[in-house]
Write a protein that binds this DNA or RNA. Sequence first.
DNA 1: TCGAATTTGTGCGTATGTATC
DNA 2: GGATACATACGCACAAATTCG
Lengths: 247, 247
Amino acid sequence: MVQPAYQRIADELRERIVSGELEPGARLPSRAALAAEYRVADSVALQALRLLASEGLVVGRSGSGTYVREKPELRRLTRSWYRESRDGSPFRADMAAQRKSGGWRAASETAEAPPAIAERLAIAQGDAVMRTRYTFLADDEPVMLSTSWEPLALTGGTDVMLPEDGPYAGRGVTERMRAIGVNVDVATEVVTARAALTAEATELGIPTGALVIVIQRTYTGDRPVETADIIVPVDRYELAYVIPVEP
Amino acid sequence: MVQPAYQRIADELRERIVSGELEPGARLPSRAALAAEYRVADSVALQALRLLASEGLVVGRSGSGTYVREKPELRRLTRSWYRESRDGSPFRADMAAQRKSGGWRAASETAEAPPAIAERLAIAQGDAVMRTRYTFLADDEPVMLSTSWEPLALTGGTDVMLPEDGPYAGRGVTERMRAIGVNVDVATEVVTARAALTAEATELGIPTGALVIVIQRTYTGDRPVETADIIVPVDRYELAYVIPVEP
DNA sequence: TCGAATTTGTGCGTATGTATC
DNA sequence: GGATACATACGCACAAATTCG
């Protein structure tokens, strides 16, 4: 397989970056310099740099140069088997552990279950659900998004129908469900990753197409009671799962 | 903020793809058609399509067209609190559950601990470690990579010094450590995502820069006993964490 | 303070090769 | 074989930001 020139240039730079030879903040050769070094047209050097930028390895600054991406202070989200036992919300606990103020905005509305959500909740497509969109804030900056769905068949007419209103506002799914006599045994988190959509990128203040981790979380007892899509930008957070090993 | 033309084109196509209006396998308008529709030059339409391709949303086929990426059959890796209680290796169990044959190749060698690994193992930089590289196979195709490090101070001179040799070959970290009287309590998995490096991409048969999930797993008892980097292509696998909720 | 040089970001038009239909 | 479409590459142009003397 013959490598196209722009890929070869990108590969060589990528190796130098991940090997640490080019440290975060270091300046890459300019487009013109790369073009001269590799004996290619300016546009080919440009293409190589665009590729690296789309991978999140480098950022260009107009008029200045292209630099190896500085890693922002990485925050950690802990997901462990005792997570719900901590007082209040897991997110606030994580933020507190890192000396950040944690909070969120939320808005709920009723909706019809789309196919993928219906399957996760084991209900019929089009069934009524309560959809709640969350924006999580750390030091007042949006850092994480979540959309949650709960079957109205379960919570309709009860105290806890609105996750962020009433006596159990903000208390977490387990506690709210317990309040209406619904048992919750396990949380399943399916982790994937993709590029951020425009709407997500705008809300989170990251470039469109930046990498995000998507967590599909479902709380289940005798049946699924809540499912959520959680969007986490990879360069701000890492997820830590703590798993006990059975003796 | 004024959006560049190529980004607007990419955004609109991206929305149509993730919303499902353009289903997997559907053909996008040709470059020429896009250029005409948006009144831009051919090269601008090209730039938009390259952006989507770099995000893994579409694939171009020479002479034919650009198509919405078909999702390969998604395999699931289950990570749960009882994972080690299953007989043999977790990977084989996952594969068996999905009617695939699972296996792996491995090669071990001694090495000096690089800084990041030393920190994860709570040893000094440069201390001797046993490094083992794994290639996991499903139906004889490489699907997952892993590199593991164990402090030689712990296993040196014992039966289990080589993870894939001796009486405990392939039996999992917990069991091997128990055999030499070392206790293992918890596994911590730190999940991030990035673009695949050239070497990884080649080995896994995916395009360079394709999205991979990186799991940094550390087994800990009284002290860290093993740590590993596990590379999982996102479009082949999803990770499922099952977390019990405390009553 | 000003201005020139540099550098990135965007965009245009063209050419060649190759795969598909 | 011819038309179509993607992949790569070249060269050029201009705006905007930055740098530096």
